[in-house]
């Protein structure tokens, strides 16, 4: 088995259909959506609330699969001198958590009437887990991607509460707890592995910022009222993000409505 596994080779059964990340970002319809024209915050008030929630849940589902695959690859790709044993233990633990999230997402999808593979899958979450530097990979996955997961799960949890869906809010709350743990792991390892290498730490944080900007593309995630995914400040603080850092993500998200501003996340 190779070290380093490209996103295009991620194994899927026949139900899944892959969309190229570039195609999504370069969709010619994007230019007709003026900045700020978004689907709107995910609340039951939206007339397309059920469809939007199902679509987001399917996105969570494939995101969990990719997070599982990303954590698994970190366990395999790096030799012991590149990634300490304790870091691999944390990633193995994350594998279990993401496997559980995958299971929960499948069940939630069924609950919401969604079929596996109903929506196209882009691999840009996994692409953040392909960086050859374990510190950058950890930062991209455990701080940017898992940070996004905090925002998404909190949005879904609040949506479940708002429409009194007991199953959705229950499950999302559990998943949210795990994601806070994963972000803490990422923050901890970033600090430990770059203790004597501020330049590497800076590169890792810059990588995280690039990935975060991608996740905020066109205001998909942000603090604007009509951002579908809301930045979850309280849970992010709990996970170890500083206020300045959250402010930066919010500011980048606001500026991120510029479709020219994105670039591929693989370093």
């Amino acid at each position: 088995m190779r070290k380093s596994f490209p996103a295009e080779d991620l194994a899927r059964d026949g139900r899944f259909r892959r969309a190229r990340t570039e195609d999504r970002f370069e969709d010619p319809r994007n230019e007709f959506l003026p900045p700020g024209r978004r689907a709107g915050k995910l609340t039951p008030d939206r007339s397309d609330a059920a469809h939007a929630a199902r679509q987001l849940m399917h996105g969570i589902f494939v995101g969990e699969i990719q997070a599982l695959e990303g954590a698994g690859r970190t366990v395999w790709d790096f030799d012991d001198d590149e990634a300490p044993f304790a870091l691999k233990l944390d990633m193995a633990r994350q594998c279990w958590d993401e496997a559980r999230h995958t299971e929960m997402s499948v069940k939630l999808g069924e609950w919401m009437g969604t079929e596996v593979g109903e929506f196209a899958e882009t691999a840009f979450l996994y692409q953040a887990a392909c960086n050859p530097d374990p510190v950058l990979r950890l930062t991209g996955v455990n701080r940017a991607l898992e940070g996004l997961a905090i925002d998404v799960f909190n949005t879904m949890r609040e949506f479940g509460e708002a429409c009194s869906d007991p199953v959705l809010s229950f499950c999302e709350d559990w998943m949210l707890a795990d994601e806070v743990t994963h972000v803490k792991m990422g923050s901890d390892w970033l600090r430990r592995l770059t203790e004597n290498d501020p330049e590497r730490r800076e590169r890792a944080l810059e990588f995280q910022r690039v990935v975060d900007k991608l996740f905020s593309f066109r205001g998909f995630r942000g603090e604007a009222d009509d951002s579908p995914i809301q930045l979850a400040r309280t849970f992010r603080r709990m996970a170890g993000f500083g206020d300045t850092e959250i402010d930066t993500i919010a500011a980048d998200a606001e500026a991120g409505s510029d479709p020219e501003g994105w670039r591929a996340p693989v370093g």
């Binding site: 596994f5 080779d9 194994a11 599982l68 954590a71 366990v75 496997a99 995958t102 499948v106």
Partner: peptide, 15 residues
């Protein structure tokens, strides 16, 4: 096992 997760298409095997 971690490395193989990305290489198997069967969802039950993957998890």
């Amino acid at each position: 096992l971690g490395g193989w997760v990305a290489t198997v298409p069967e969802l039950d095997v993957k998890t």
